[in-house]
Design a protein around this nucleic acid. Structure first.
Lengths: 148, 148
DNA sequence: TATTGTTATACTCTATAACTATA
DNA sequence: TATAGTTATAGAGTATAACAATA
């Protein structure tokens, strides 16, 4: 417990996480490219399938400046994957929403990503449960210490 | 076992991994920015501290085209963090190597990243061991199934 | 001929600042 | 006056294609 920083075990785990991050990231970009999308475009399109979203909100999700979102949505809109709608409650706001075409692309993208999830196939259900709880704890989601 | 794809547990773990990836990536960029480096520059500089590296090899490590490396090294060189050296064995090759300044910056960057490792402090030694072995299995490194 | 690194070009993402239309 | 979205601008990373030097 205490303050683990540079002990060999921690260093090893950190390196493994780094490897997972690099692989996951690369495969995400690759899956996006397969659908002629950039990583940012793919992330936004996926986000929009949850619900029509104000430009400002998209920027917050992407952790970038709102001005960047204009261009990303422009390009998705030019390809007919997304459309801008007025917000009935506030005429300053524009809601970005996927078109039918956009939904299809987003679904295919999601399926491509299943392929990126292959590594989990190596683990049994029990192991996945343990992994889930450890990751939750790491992320401060306070999963119970004992298996549930 | 079999072919786990869309069962709730797998989906949950995939989402958690996605969260870890996003957080790790964001904190890496942030740590790099703290030293006025972009993510790509930080990755290259870190790489070079292992050994002087041909431009071509850097491109392979970064999974990008060699032409891009020229610019990244240009900018690191302009800041005095990296230098280009001839390769004694092949006069076509240029080896990129960190300057003393570059080594100092790389070390500080590494220390900043320790901060990004904080989440692991939530776990005990035993839990870190379990996590290590699960990650290894995921990455196809074939760690023993039983704890070692 | 093949390979290494570079240059030139074009596109995307990024932050900053200034602008507009609403609120 | 404050906020949402946009435009304008500049810097960085990216891929492609063409090039010079060397193998």
């Amino acid at each position: 417990m205490a303050t683990p920083r540079t002990d060999p075990l921690t260093v090893e785990v950190v390196e493994l996480i780094g490897t997972v991050v690099a692989r996951y990231y690369a495969e995400y970009e690759q899956a996006a490219a397969k659908h002629s999308l950039t990583g940012a475009q793919a992330r936004v399109l996926s986000l929009l399938t949850l619900e029509p979203t104000p430009m400002r909100r998209i920027a917050q999700k992407l952790k970038c400046e709102p001005s960047n979102v204009t261009g990303i949505i422009d390009r998705l809109e030019a390809r007919g994957l997304v459309e801008r709608r007025p917000d009935p409650n506030d005429r300053r706001v524009k809601l970005a929403a996927p078109t039918e075409d956009g939904r299809v692309t987003a679904r295919r993208l999601r399926e491509s990503l299943d392929f990126a999830r292959e590594p989990l196939a190596e683990l049994s259900d029990e192991e996945r449960t343990v992994l889930r709880d450890l990751l939750k704890r790491m992320l401060g989601k306070e999963a119970p210490v004992a298996a549930r």
